[in-house]
């Protein structure tokens, strides 16, 4: 494959469309998803439940459920100048690819460990499955990683999972995830279901690890604050489509899509001011029979007739900040009015 890909791009998702075949009909889980992930970059996919963000991440390591069908698109992965389409890897290549190139840390890490094996064994097994049999070398690497996630390495390495708290397990899992030095780490809701102080520890550890090991992160979250804190690039996913993508500051301070803006105005802040919040009306659509045109139009405050006919393309004045909306001007005006209201 000879796609033109810059050296610093590790992963390119190109026009990816996935359907789930169900008894009630085909669910259009993702439609024409495209993005580039650069080396050392952290990208957040934010969206509500059912928006398709988990589907996207599972497709990157080919872990989609059996009833899923990729109808279009490719997932290009680049390492040391070689570009491969993940969707076309053979079984053997895929085994190699997973964990060595791309690791995923799933939601609910509490259950990811085998309860009857020591942490040491689980590190060794992972290494051996990928052809790394020198136990002492694995141990050295593991201890180094456990130290990096701020755990007591000797103690944790010889512990059983039940001897560790939820936060410790999550950190151990992060260390295990990067054992084989992957270029891309996918995190599904990395801090959900953890206590606030544990969440803080995980965020700090992740930032540290990423600085030291220089991998790229894709993380999925419904938590805007987490994206604000950790992401370089934020993509808002709605009804299986990326409706806005851009650098984190652009998304938070200059949102161009009404859905992104709606999300931002529905989360309370912790400052000393009273919040002026509004929620988005309606509910996310059914993806078996999605709305015509722009899928957000039934819930959008700026909707016109055009929106229900034509789906707007992802576009923007700046090449790095794109949004799919016909009425960015109307949104801008509404934002200015809101800012005035807040100032008063």
């Amino acid at each position: 494959m000879n796609q033109k890909m810059n050296d610093d791009v590790v992963l390119r998702v190109d026009d990816l469309s996935i359907v789930y075949r169900t008894k009630r009909g085909n669910v259009q889980a993702t439609t024409d998803i495209s993005f580039d992930l650069k080396r050392g970059e952290a990208m957040a996919l934010i969206g509500e439940s059912g928006s398709g963000k988990t589907t996207v991440s599972l497709s990157l390591i080919r872990k989609l459920p059996k009833n899923a069908l990729v109808t279009k698109g490719q997932v290009l992965y680049q390492r040391e100048g070689n570009v491969r389409d993940v969707l076309k890897l053979s079984k053997r290549q895929l085994r190699e690819f997973r964990w060595k190139d791309c690791a995923m840390v799933f939601q609910g890490s509490q259950n990811a460990f085998n309860p009857v094996l020591k942490i040491r064994k689980q590190f060794e097994d992972t290494a051996r499955a990928h052809g790394w049999t020198d136990k002492e070398a694995v141990r050295q690497r593991a201890l180094e990683l456990l130290r990096l996630v701020r755990l007591d390495p000797e103690r944790v390495y010889e512990a059983y999972p039940h001897e560790l708290s939820g936060g410790m397990k999550q950190r151990t899992l992060l260390a295990l995830g990067v054992l084989l030095n992957p270029q891309v780490v996918i995190l599904d809701e990395p801090t959900t279901a953890l206590d606030i102080l544990t969440q803080r520890a995980i965020i700090d550890v992740l930032n540290d690890m990423q600085k030291k090991l220089n991998f790229s992160i894709i993380f999925i979250s419904h938590d805007l604050s987490l994206a604000a804190e950790m992401a370089d690039i934020v993509a808002t996913v709605y009804a299986g489509e990326i409706v806005e993508i851009g650098p984190v500051n652009d998304i938070f301070y200059d949102p161009q899509h009404p859905y992104t803006h709606g999300l931002l105005t529905s989360v309370p802040k912790l400052d000393h001011e009273q919040d002026l919040l509004t929620s988005i009306k309606g509910a996310p659509p059914n993806l078996i029979t999605p709305p015509s045109g722009c899928k957000f139009h039934p819930r959008c405050p700026y909707v016109t007739e055009k929106c229900s006919v034509d789906g707007p393309p992802l576009a923007g004045d700046k090449p790095e900040h794109l949004a799919a909306c016909w009425h960015k001007d109307a949104l801008l005006k509404a934002r200015e009015e809101l800012a005035q209201e807040v100032a008063q």
């Binding site: 102080l197 544990t198 805007l224 604050s225 938070f252 912790l270």
Partner: peptide, 28 residues
């Protein structure tokens, strides 16, 4: 105080410049 300092906020600049209070131990 520790809680308020630890919580991420939906504002990139604010949340990244927030000072976090370190606990003596993370174990509950």
């Amino acid at each position: 105080r520790v809680l308020l300092s630890a919580i991420p906020e939906p504002d990139p600049e604010k949340t990244r410049t927030k000072r976090h209070i370190q606990l003596r131990s993370e174990d509950i």
